[in-house]
Design a binder for these strands. Structure first.
Length: 824
RNA sequence: GCGAGAGUGGCGGAACUGGCAGACGCGCCAGACUUAGGAUCUGGUGGGCAACCGUGGGGGUUCAAGUCCCCCCUCUCGCACCA
């Protein structure tokens, strides 16, 4: 151990040692409990940013802690390596996406991540753009195709004009592209879909099992899936031109229908307006609305507009004749594209009725005060008693919901049904750098999946990328033209590639057996390692990756490949790294480059600071001065250990005989505190604060006359504990101290310290004395003093006497060993 | 509008079941060592001269409230015409 802490030497040395000795290589071991710790793998953009540093530092503390607790820890890392930036770089700089990606990975792995000292089993590295990986994307696709979970249909899709590709619903944020922020347009295209809706019910119901996930992620998923239970009801169109089917979640308001509204795209529109005097006007309205951009039209602030079609529908419950309107707010893709409108009990309908002078009919009476239709200023949407609803009058509307639904089903007027907001997952992308969809189109045989033995369908390397036009793969004749696997005739390949979110939907399973060539993963390995015990990543994936991965896991289960329902048992969503109150971004000029921090302070300081400055789930405010503080702390620890290490090398650590010693007690209190803080929601910031307190105590303890004989053993046990406790946070640093104390094996595999409950018992207690709830004095009493003794001591206290002014106390409250409140 | 989370010193943040508000760190002030200090160590540091006042604001419960209850304000994130 050198006198001065030289982080560069220390970190390089231990990184080399870990690698040479394969300290973090793991394999299945039935004799040990397993722990799977996973951080969301990065996109190889070229450089890591502070968000990555934070994410991996958090994961590494957990992995190292659980390892020391005796778990067999799987802690892998890989690359989400397909995606658009590689293609854009190719277009801009003329470098092949493959070369660009592989060079980025090499830099990020060897020059950045490895410098952070993360305890990964690098032998399990997974790279999704390699054939050995993406062939299994294709294999899953075919398995899903065979089961009807992958299908092709013509559909309106979200189209990003800037990225030149399709986007899934999950990738459109407020009408803008999630990647580049361009306004998303719509296009009709033949698209491949994964039938995620098949799992809608289970994806929703098993959310309740995800007790280790943050509530807001669960809420976001629930909202996204958007289950709504209701009834479909057939209204007949007056004049006999068929049925108009509507969906409602409020069958209890059926008697209050005063008009109907249909979407401008509704297929019945044409027949409804045929021969009506207003048909031209209606068509003009519809065309105007349809020309508007979808994002604009569906903006809530957009004024609700409509026009009467001239046609009427008959309410099957009371035979009322109600006008049919076209509304710009009615969505063709939700429900049936037609709604019944009940202005008395729906605010939107109410506003629409007021605007166009349509009638209001109350069918649910407010039990408090009587509603009068003409005097209503807004819709009444709460529960109440049924009125104006024939034989349902007098029932509570909650009961009537069921009764009316029953009646509708019995009379064959409609049926109970469930509507979902969740749409099937469109996975076709008209881009190059992704997994080719393994489908062949044959004129004779139609759509033919590529046979398993012909996989992978390799991504050709000689495709010209222009960024213009359709799928780049369509430009490659050698790729496009092929033979039909069924009849051998000429055929063409599908030239779209898969959404890269397919890659990340099962990579956690691949880590279980990353080099397996016969299957995506080995069932026994997955049985041992899965599920992921702790998953860590950003909140931005709440409904993208995290929903797709859950879907894939369930589909994989149904393929019989793994016996589990959910991929991630516990989820930690770490906050963003911000600086000067804003997210780090090039345009703001507040980016902190991890490379600079690593060169100036080293990995251990960078890790320590990013864990100390805020609890993991909160945003972290980066502060250069705060980093100095973390750096200083390590130097301070180094200095005190260096000062005593030589003398203490052969000193036995103190045992139970040291109970009662101040530093010994602090040591055990710190072991307790750090352990509990890690266990309790990973509160690393307070755990590190406790370590700082302990170091302050060590300085205090050794500042006066110090004798190795008398105090050395206590100090030795303090330094031992400190080294172990700090090792998940500052691993290189801890290894160096651990070695200097005479240990041969890596601290990474040393057992986590245990505290001695007897050692933390205090011999004296400080009792706070309050008069009328205000702190007036403090008493130091022997531990275990009885309440009566504490009370007597408090009343005898001169300060208390002064404040009670000689009056007899009205009441005295004694909180066991802690506090006395004298009430006068 | 709905849902989730948050408002505590000059700053980042502590306070786990109601019981000393401000742990720990940054910054600042003073001292020591020094030719020097942007190194290190030691001490101090919520406001106010004081009584006292202090956890976004206003009420309440309680011997005791950052913590529990009611009303309101602000900020962040997500969803948002879903019938």
């Amino acid at each position: 151990m050198e006198e001065r802490y030289d982080f560069k030497k220390v970190e390089e040395r231990w990184q080399r040692t870990w690698q040479e000795k394969n300290i973090f290589r793991v394999k299945e071991d039935a004799s040990k409990p397993k722990y799977y710790c996973l951080e969301m793998f990065p996109y190889p953009s070229g450089r890591i940013h502070m968000g990555h540093v934070r994410n991996y530092a958090i994961g590494d503390v957990i992995a190292r802690y659980e390892r020391m607790r005796g778990f067999n820890v799987l802690h892998p890392m890989g690359w989400d390596a397909f995606g658009l930036p590689a293609e854009n770089a190719a277009i801009k700089h003329g470098i092949h996406p493959s070369k660009w990606t592989i060079e980025n990975i090499a830099y990020m792995r060897d020059k950045q991540l490895k410098r952070l000292g993360l305890s990964y089993d690098w032998d399990r590295e997974v790279t999704t753009c390699f054939e050995e990986y993406y062939r299994w994307n294709q294999w899953f696709f075919i398995k899903m195709y065979e089961r009807g979970l992958a299908y092709k249909k013509l559909s309106y899709v979200n189209w990003c004009p800037s990225c030149n590709t399709v986007l899934a619903n999950e990738q459109v944020e407020g009408g803008l592209c999630w990647r580049c922020g361009s306004v998303v347009t719509h296009k009709e295209l033949e698209q491949w879909f994964f039938k995620i809706t098949e799992y809608a019910e289970e994806l929703l119901s098993s959310i309740d099992k995800l007790t280790g996930w943050p509530e807001r992620v669960l809420t976001m998923q629930r909202n996204w899936i958007g289950k709504s239970v209701g009834v479909e009801v057939d209204f007949t169109v007056e004049g006999g031109s068929g049925k108009l089917t509507i969906f409602t979640t409020r069958p209890d308001t059926l008697f209050g229908v005063t008009f109907m509204s249909i979407a401008p795209e509704h297929p019945m529109l044409e027949s409804l307006i045929k021969g009506k005097k207003q048909s031209e006007e209606v068509l003009a309205f519809v065309q105007r609305v349809l020309r508007e951009d979808k994002a604009v039209r569906t903006d809530e602030k957009q004024e609700k507009e409509g026009i009467f079609t001239g046609a009427y529908a008959v309410n099957p419950l009371n035979n009322d004749k109600v006008p049919i309107w076209v509304g710009n707010f009615v969505l063709m893709e939700y429900g049936t594209g037609a709604i019944m409108s009940v202005p008395a009990h729906d605010q939107r309908d109410f506003e629409f009725a007021m605007k166009y002078g349509l009638p209001v009919r109350v069918v649910i009476q407010n039990p408090g005060k009587s509603l009068v239709a003409e005097k209503m200023a807004q819709a009444y949407v709460d529960d109440g008693v049924m009125v104006n609803s024939a034989r349902f009058d007098g029932l509570s509307n909650v009961a009537a919901k069921e009764k009316i639904a029953d009646f509708i089903e019995q009379s064959k007027l409609g049926k109970r049904t469930v509507n979902w907001r969740l749409r099937d997952w469109g996975i076709s992308r008209q881009r190059y750098w992704g997994t080719p969809i393994p489908i062949i189109y044959c004129e004779k045989c139609g759509t033919v999946p590529v046979p398993e033995e012909d996989l992978p369908v390799k991504l050709p390397m000689d495709v010209a990328l222009t960024g213009k036009g359709q799928s780049p793969l369509a430009e490659s004749r050698s790729f496009r033209e092929t033979r039909c696997p069924k009849c051998g005739g000429t055929a063409r390949r599908e030239t779209d590639t898969m959404d890269t979110f397919v890659d990340s939907s099962w990579y956690f399973l691949r880590y279980c057996s990353p080099r397996l060539e016969s299957a995506p993963f080995a069932k026994n390995a997955a049985s041992y390692w899965m599920s992921v015990d702790q998953y860590i990543g950003g909140i931005e994936h709440a409904v993208l990756h995290l929903l797709y991965a859950r879907f894939f896991t369930k589909a994989i289960r149904d393929l019989g490949l793994w016996d589990g329902d959910e991929p991630f048992k516990n989820l930690l969503t770490q906050g963003m790294v911000i600086k000067d109150g804003a997210k780090m971004s090039k345009s703001k000029g507040n980016v902190v480059d991890p490379d600079l921090i690593l060169s100036k302070y080293g990995a251990d300081t960078a890790r320590l600071f990013s864990l100390f400055a805020a609890p993991p789930e909160r945003d972290l405010d980066w502060s250069d001065q705060g980093v100095d503080g973390a750096y200083r702390f390590l130097h301070r620890v180094w200095a005190i250990v260096y000062k005593h290490a030589d003398r203490l090398k052969d000193v036995k650590p103190a045992g139970t005989e040291a109970r009662g010693n101040r530093l010994y007690r602090k040591t055990h209190l710190t072991i307790k505190k750090v352990t509990e803080d890690i266990e309790r929601e990973f509160h690393f910031n307070t755990a590190i604060a406790a370590l700082m307190e302990m170091v302050n105590e060590m300085y205090d303890y050794t500042s006066n006359e110090f004798s190795v004989n008398k105090q050395g053993r206590v100090l030795r046990s303090a330094i031992d504990a400190l080294t172990l406790l700090i090792s998940p946070f500052a691993p290189h640093f801890a290894e160096e101290l651990w070695e200097s104390l005479g240990n041969k094996a890596s601290v990474a595999n040393a057992p986590w310290p245990q505290y001695d409950p007897e050692a933390i018992v205090a011999s004296e207690i400080t009792v706070v004395v309050q008069v009328n709830g205000k702190v007036r004095s403090k008493l130091t009493l022997p531990a275990g003093s009885a309440d009566k003794e504490i009370e007597a001591a408090a009343l005898a206290d001169p300060k208390v006497r002064e404040y009670t002014d000689g009056k007899a106390p009205k009441k005295v409250i004694v909180v066991q060993g802690k506090l006395v409140n004298v009430v006068v």
